[in-house]
């Protein structure tokens, strides 16, 4: 994976997307801790991307880390108030 990261180093946009995809890949394989690492790396490049916060939220929720998950869903909605999935998950966690 290191090679991949280096390959895209010059193009931050691509690297950001690549990290998100990698994180999603780990998430889908239930490697939640690794997924979180990738998403956090992506956040370092762009801290204004709601997609990253949503994916972090869903990964935390999958790990039953409810507080962290709620926080991430809230961040998602701050950046993109019509994010349907983040809203659904947050509503469920808050108990609405």
């Amino acid at each position: 994976m290191k090679d991949k990261k280096e390959k895209f180093n010059k193009n931050e946009d691509n690297l950001e997307q690549e990290l998100i995809e990698l994180g999603k890949f780990y998430f889908l394989n239930q490697k939640y801790d690794q997924a979180i690492k990738e998403f956090q790396e992506a956040l370092k490049i762009n801290s204004n991307n709601p997609q990253i916060y949503y994916n972090l939220g869903i990964t935390y929720e999958a790990k039953n880390m409810i507080e962290q998950a709620s926080k991430m869903y809230r961040q998602t909605l701050e950046l993109k108030s019509d994010h349907v999935y983040a809203k659904e998950h947050l509503d469920k966690l808050v108990g609405i």
Binding site: K24, F27, L28, N29, Q30, Y54, N55, I58, E61, A62, Y85
Partner: peptide, 13 residues
């Protein structure tokens, strides 16, 4: 919780 990709391409479980 089973991770999935939804029809719209979003990750979910």
């Amino acid at each position: 919780k089973q991770p999935i990709v939804t029809k719209s391409g979003e990750t979910d479980f």
